[in-house]
Simulated assay, not measured.
Amino acid sequence: MSRTVLVTGVSRYLGGRFARALASRSEVGRVIGVDVIAPPHDIGDAEFVRADIRNAMIGRILQQTEADTVVHMSVIATPNSAGGRTAQKEVNVIGTMQLLAACQRAPRLQRLVVKSTSAVYGSSPRDPAMLTETMTGKNPPRSGWGKDSAEVEEYVRGFGRRRPDVEVATLRLANVIGPGIRTSMTDYFSLPVVPTVLGFDPRLQFLHEDDAIEALVRATLGPAQDVINVAGDGVITLGQAARFAGRPTVGIASPLAELMGTVYHRGGLADFSADQIRYLRFGRCLDTTRMREVLGLEPAYTTRSAFQDFVRTRGLRGVFSPTVVNAVERKLVSRLRPEPQPGTEVLQ
């Protein structure tokens, strides 16, 4: 019997690509994409329904379409795209609660797939080299997208206990990167000069957008359940990534790193929370054994080749003139330098 799948968040890049890919599969009879605005991109044969998952209307849509599968991709990563941090949390947490309440009342529902993030582990120098799904990070996220995603996962676990008849799969994706997607990390490596935390060169892991879509499709149509880490093979350091992108780096002392994030956020250059600054100090890497055993996924791109594909398609690689580099560095340092207090002498 063919599947009827309801997908949230189809107006965002990854959600739209996933809906299009799913609608092309022979096992799927119908795909209903839900979001508050019409998708600016092609979603193939998927149908679009304008709805807000924070509203009880989502329950009526689920009942009327008789969807047997729900794929939740509406957890927003950056507050700017949601209209601010308050709106972001409402969509992420309140929206998830409303969606799960609707799923609770849907007797035909057989499967729930949730797109989560590796950010739920946080970043800490005391974390193991590779984090498995059963581990909890030593310093879990305290704000922003990571904290929202951790709360979402908690609500999903509660739903699984209340509806044991529904198969639930949660995919913790590493930082997704590629030719089309825009994230805080793609913005970061597109800066003329990449700021780093002085004395740290963290190990990073990336997931190509094509592999992210394939993982979600397999989780939707296959037997996958529970939490699954998804990432490309291997790691690269932040310094290596900056060199691949042809970007010079400037080291910022640790006490000023969070202020650096604020400067870039307010300037609209990149969106970094305190938790993301910790990621740029300590990094984070995932064990992907379950990805292979449960999803049967062998990523087409390694961490290195995924990043290189991002660099190639964005046209980043090149030589920046010393004049431009020095000007950006001076501007950044001047913003981070504290203002002298009246009556104090500034030492040169």
Rank of each mutant, 00 (worst) to 15 (best):
V227S: 06
E258R: 13
V263S: 00
V10D: 00
T86M: 09
G283H: 15
G144S: 11
H265A: 03
G251D: 14
G239M: 13
S124P: 02
N92F: 01
L171P: 07
I181A: 04
D309A: 03
A241E: 08
F320P: 05
V91P: 01
R203S: 15
R30K: 05
E90A: 05
R330K: 06
D233P: 06
R157K: 13
P40D: 01
G222S: 05
R247G: 00
E66L: 11
A82K: 09
V5A: 01
V333M: 11
A212V: 15
T196S: 03
A82N: 11
R162M: 06
I252T: 05
R314E: 00
S124L: 08
L173Q: 04
A102K: 04
G144D: 14
L347R: 12
M260N: 07
L256Y: 15
L295H: 14
I94D: 08
G144Y: 14
G59A: 05
V120E: 05
A56K: 15
A67G: 00
S334V: 14
C103M: 11
S2F: 13
R3A: 04
P179F: 07
T249A: 01
Q205A: 08
T237G: 00
F244I: 15
R292V: 11
G178T: 14
L204H: 10
A242V: 04
I43Q: 01
R172I: 02
T289H: 14
R172S: 00
Q276K: 05
Q110R: 10
Y155E: 12
G315Q: 14
E293P: 03
V217E: 03
G318F: 05
R30N: 00
Y188F: 15
V235E: 12
L316S: 03
R126W: 08
D226K: 14
L216T: 12
F200C: 09
D165E: 13
Y13T: 07
S190T: 09
I94A: 08
Y188V: 08
V263M: 02
Q240G: 00
I177Y: 07
N80A: 11
P125N: 12
V5W: 02
L173E: 01
R12E: 03
H41N: 10
